[in-house]
């Protein structure tokens, strides 16, 4: 029976593991940056300062309406042509942060607007300072509302790291291209590369769903809340 698998995958295993780690590094750094930038931009969009609102809106609209390859090429090839040379990791992360930051800012803006005004008032009525109202009442509720959208963006970002093949960023898709150029077995190679992406993305998607469920059920996620729940349970028993 003919088989489609002829490549000596065992010899490519170390390279694939390294490429997978690079893909994960791009994902973690870029998502952390994009989420932070998105949150800041969302707060700026809702600020009372008109210039800040405009600047945030221009950024969001700009990056929402260009293909993701554009910032990748501008940062890697464009800046290099002007004398500023970034590594593939720097250029790739910055491009993904800028691109996904715009989408995440919209998700966070919607989530912040989704926290009812009466929640702000209830916190103010307890004497919480404005910064603490935001930190302990508004942001935790907004992040819960943002979780489904932000989780989807995380998985999307992981897949989008494959675009960095265009700047040979040593991630999975670049490694696949290298193996193909050596073995000439594109069908088999990209099937395996696709399977690796699936193995990374599927558990991530399920993990985000599980996190949503845990948050909805009120399960304490942070160590501080877990300690508090344990203490209350001990009080109740004693």
């Amino acid at each position: 029976m003919p088989t489609i698998f002829h490549v000596d995958w065992f010899s490519y295993l170390p390279a694939l593991v390294e490429a997978t780690l690079v893909t994960l590094a791009f994902t973690v750094v870029s998502f952390a940056g994009a989420a932070s930038l998105g949150l800041l931009v969302a707060v700026a969009r809702l600020s009372s300062s008109r210039p800040l609102r405009w600047a945030a809106q221009i950024y969001t609209e700009l990056f929402k309406n260009v293909p993701p390859l554009t910032p990748i090429f501008i940062l890697y090839f464009g800046l290099a042509s002007m004398g500023l040379v970034l590594t593939t990791f720097e250029a790739g992360c910055c491009a993904l942060i800028l691109f996904y930051g715009s989408y995440l800012s919209e998700i966070f803006r919607g989530a912040l607007l989704g926290v009812p005004l009466h929640q702000h008032e209830a916190a103010q009525a307890l004497g919480l300072r404005p910064s603490r109202v935001t930190l302990y009442v508004v942001l935790p509720q907004a992040l819960r509302l943002a979780l489904p959208g932000a989780g989807t963006m995380l998985v999307d970002l992981l897949k989008a790291t494959s675009l960095l093949v265009t700047i040979s960023a040593s991630e999975l898709m670049t490694e696949g291209t290298l193996i193909t150029s050596i073995t000439f077995r594109a069908f088999e190679v990209y099937l395996v590369i696709g399977a690796i992406y699936f193995c990374l993305c599927f558990p991530l998607s399920r993990g985000v769903l599980a996190l949503e469920g845990a948050v909805r059920r009120g399960m304490p996620i942070s160590p501080r809340r877990r300690r508090l729940h344990r203490t209350v349970s001990n009080f109740s028993v004693s």
Binding site: H118, Q119, E121, A122, A123, A125, L126, G127, P140, Q141
Partner: peptide, 16 residues
Amino acid sequence: RQKVGMVFQQFHLFPH
């Protein structure tokens, strides 16, 4: 606001 507490018609507990 620490001296003047308030109980609202719709409770307004923090749902999280």
